[in-house]
Amino acid sequence: MEFTKEVDASGLNCPLPILRCKKGLSELEAAQVLKIIATDPGSVKDFNAFCAQTGHTLLQLNQDGKTFTFYIKKRTD
């Protein structure tokens, strides 16, 4: 999947993956895609909740062992 920016939040625990994601998205234009990598098992639910509440779109979630990769499209205001 194509993306504009990548953020690695591996090894970080709640709430840091979400905070890094928010920061990453703030550096993107509307409709651009952020790739974010996390190893926090709680991040799957948290990223879903984050997107549901903020209006960004979780396009894809890949799991490779204990590593999760999220592709999030920034909302168009």
Partner: peptide, 11 residues
Amino acid sequence: FILASTAAALD
């Protein structure tokens, strides 16, 4: 601080 920073990230 966790709740405040997360809530801020949620706008």
